[in-house]
Design a protein around this nucleic acid. Structure first.
Lengths: 190, 190, 190, 190
DNA sequence: GATGAATGAGTGTTCATTCAT
DNA sequence: CATGAATGAACACTCATTCAT
């Protein structure tokens, strides 16, 4: 008996990401995924019950992976500002390096494919930054604004700077990252 | 040839915006637009050559309208910082009040419906903020960073703060706007 | 504007009946119906929401038509036995003449396509014969057995005799009908 | 070559009958048969060349079994009428007890799965009753009608009475059987 | 101009059958 | 022999677009 091939799932995920970046989530279709993944279209349904489930599964994997990756550098024994700097740098590099994956995530969230479990991950991803900002406020380093607003400012700014680089087909220079962090820190510091 | 009825175009636009906010751009279909606009589905093709053209036309109208609206408050005879403050306030209130229209704009940009003329408007919209930032640098008020990065920080931060309010079904308080501008100004000021 | 064409529904019904007699209800598919009806396959969905609804609609039309046709000859002012004779003759001729329609009805009932409203018609069709049998019992002409059993005997016998003729590609001779009624009457008469 | 495991064939047959009664012959699929039979789906193809052959094989087994069972009680040394009575009783009890199997037989005959060899069994099953009726005519006990018509009347009536009981979820009472035979005998006796 | 009936290419999904293990 | 992963033809259904009225 042939065993379920774990590489197939990877190939399906890779094909899906590639296609979404080429034709958008709305232009995605199962036939094309199969073809690009190098497997029969029917095989998709061996691994995923439906298109919706395929999208949700991929979304969850990516969202969990990146939520985890983003906070990887955080180390509470480091000075607060350095922690923030590493976080921002790491965040931006991650957005840039995996922009295809983040594009998929964003299009999924705007689409009506995601179920409530998937959407919850979107909320959960903010827990870490909220906690970090609260700690900054405790240390009287960070402005006494609602953390949602502080976080939104940080995330929105960083996202847009990375998006601008990608749109203009530029690389994400270390200068840009440096500038981004300076602006970010100035915006939230007390 | 009789002139096309401008009320019908308005109804089509309104129906499209409403539907996109309900079912997403991917879920949009011509039949539903006709029905919601109170006109026959075939009539859509009297006013728009195709679905793609309908979306492009609506996109252009909205994008031009909002690019113009956003810069309405700018008055170079005012003090620089006040100018910026009015701009940010106006920008955020506009995003909040017309969030359905901005949702349509965003989904359109991510989709593959827009032609190059439409996409150019996305670029053009930044001209005003770039000019304003350059003026700030000339006055030694604004950091000497690339204006694209300064603008991205401003726009991204403001967008995300408004998006957070909408996602959480809150109103956009004057406090939030105040906080947002403080962060924005701190981030770009020299 | 083109008006919905009532002939199309007739053509769809005719095509469906023809196809079911050729390939069975299980072999029926929408593409083939469209082709045989001389219309585009998509047009089927202008007239019927789904395959299931098409089958239910056709089933209901046929079942109501034949339930009505079968009882057309009944006239309570006639002598009881003559009434029964006309009923049986009419029933058998109807089964034979419209055997394609009755084949469709039978396959539909066995399939899982019919909804409860449709299935109810199957029950309703027996009301007339039950009433007639009760009247026969009142006149002490008919055996004092449960009417369901008397009716089942009548209907089953007649159906099978017609089915045998059709299976063997024979015509339904007036002799056969005469024999059938004699047997039928002998079986139920007191 | 090892002999095919007869238990597996039994399990496949049982699973098929069960499934057909649940979802109809049209809803039957090989995957489900395998699962319900407790064997791998691919294993079905060790025992049967195709779905069609599986159905034909099961049909033949059941049809031969029941044709044989039905005539089990016939004993030409018994009085003719008693012979007929035992036949009808036995026939009806068999239809009722094995209604799942008879349902499968009926759906198979209406479907286009059966090959000509299988269909011939349908014809062969009538040989016994035809012979019996001819003997009755020789003894001047049975009406001088074509035996096909006499047989159709008997079989159709009995089938429908049993079907009515099953449809209405009732048991087949000995009264019903008694009534059925009385009607049957009255209908064919000279 | 205004309409919606008509259309068929395209979509997600199923399933009998094959085949590598 | 036994298995179930793999496959693609076939299916029900959708929808942008056309066109007769």
């Amino acid at each position: 008996m042939k065993l379920k091939d774990p590489d197939k799932i990877k190939a399906i995920h890779a094909a899906t990401l590639q296609l979404v970046s080429e034709v958008g989530l709305a232009g995605l279709n199962m036939n094309a995924i199969g073809k690009k993944a190098g497997i029969g279209m029917g095989t998709l349904y061996v691994y995923f019950k439906s298109k919706e489930e395929l999208i949700n599964a991929l979304y969850r994997e990516l969202k969990l992976k990146h939520t985890s990756l983003i906070y990887h550098t955080v180390d509470m024994s480091l000075p607060y500002k350095l922690n923030m700097q590493l976080l921002v740098e790491n965040y931006m590099k991650n957005r840039f390096k995996y922009f295809q994956e983040h594009l998929f995530i964003e299009q999924s969230v705007l689409s009506h494919f995601l179920d409530s479990t998937s959407l919850q991950l979107e909320v959960d991803a903010y827990a870490g930054i909220y906690a970090l900002l609260k700690e900054g406020q405790r240390q009287l380093l960070v402005k006494d604004f609602p953390v949602e607003i502080l976080a939104a400012q940080m995330v929105g700014g960083a996202n847009e700077i990375v998006a601008d680089a990608i749109r203009k087909n530029k690389k994400l220079s270390s200068n840009s990252i440096q500038y981004a962090f300076e602006m970010c820190w100035d915006s939230i510091q007390r």
